[in-house]
Amino acid sequence: MTTQALTTEQNETIDGLIQSILDECNASAVAVCGLDGNILAEKSGVASVADFSLANIVALAIGSFSTTKELAHLIGESSFKSVFQKGKKTGILIYELNDEFIIIMLFGEKTTEGLARLYLKSIAPKIEAVLDDAEGQTAGTAGAGAAFEIKKKENA
């Protein structure tokens, strides 16, 4: 079963961890997402990566990673732990967390690939720990209680 909810504390922990990825790797944006397309957490260092375009990047990255994963299965690998693509100036690194989640990192010229990979490897278990903790959590158990209320029809 995939995670359904993150509590405020879990959100803060993951936010802190991805902020450290931004800082340590000189990344331009980092997101933690489920292979179903949900963005669990995201941060960007550059203003140009607006919320919505990040959503598009994430959808494509997930598609690309899922495809790669299927390819791995076909040739007898369980998965490829990370996928790295670099152009002239910018690049993208996708790092698998556990079976259902990935870290997506966008970077520019200031990032060193090897160091970034090492750092992700060191930080991944900490993010995985939060996700394991959150597994099976519903909105209710994550502290929403009876908080969900659909907005009533407003008189126009």
Binding site: Q4, L6, D15, D36, L40, A139
Partner: peptide, 15 residues
């Protein structure tokens, strides 16, 4: 399935 982030007050749905 729907994903709720209580910290960000966000709910994600996939259609």
């Amino acid at each position: 399935m729907p994903f709720v982030n209580m910290g960000k007050k966000e709910i994600n749905f996939k259609i």
